[in-house]
């Protein structure tokens, strides 16, 4: 069977699929941030006077939890716009 896919085309297609798979990393931080926000809301409900402290602690925790998702995002961006695999293939 004669296919018309070039080597570069195959690398680009697989990179696009890989970038999509990398963004599955967004699921974890989403769940984690949701849990943090839920507990934050219940803490404010129990003690409305501490709203400022609870909110800042919650945002800090959420931003730290977000990091793993951002690693996935960085890898996806890398695969799209600064593809190391294609560079390596073109150098061979």
């Amino acid at each position: 069977m004669n296919s018309n896919i070039t080597n570069e085309g195959l690398i680009l297609a697989c990179s696009a699929i890989g970038a999509g798979i990398a963004m599955i990393a967004g699921v974890g931080p989403g769940i984690g941030q949701g849990i943090a926000a839920g507990y934050g809301a219940s803490a404010v409900g129990r003690n409305p006077g501490a709203k400022g402290d609870v909110t800042s602690t919650m945002l800090l925790g959420q931003a730290v939890a977000e990091t793993t998702g951002l690693y996935g995002l960085v890898i996806a961006l890398l695969l799209f716009y600064a593809n190391p695999l294609l560079n390596r293939f073109l150098k061979l």
Binding site: N4, E8, G9, L12, Y81, A82, N83, L86, N87
Partner: peptide, 22 residues
């Protein structure tokens, strides 16, 4: 057949990072 090789150098990244593909 799509000529990918002609477009490929656009994807090369410089020191600063990202070149225009789009």
């Amino acid at each position: 057949m799509v000529n990918v090789a002609a477009n490929a150098p656009l994807l090369l990244s410089g020191v600063g990072g990202m070149r225009a593909v789009l």
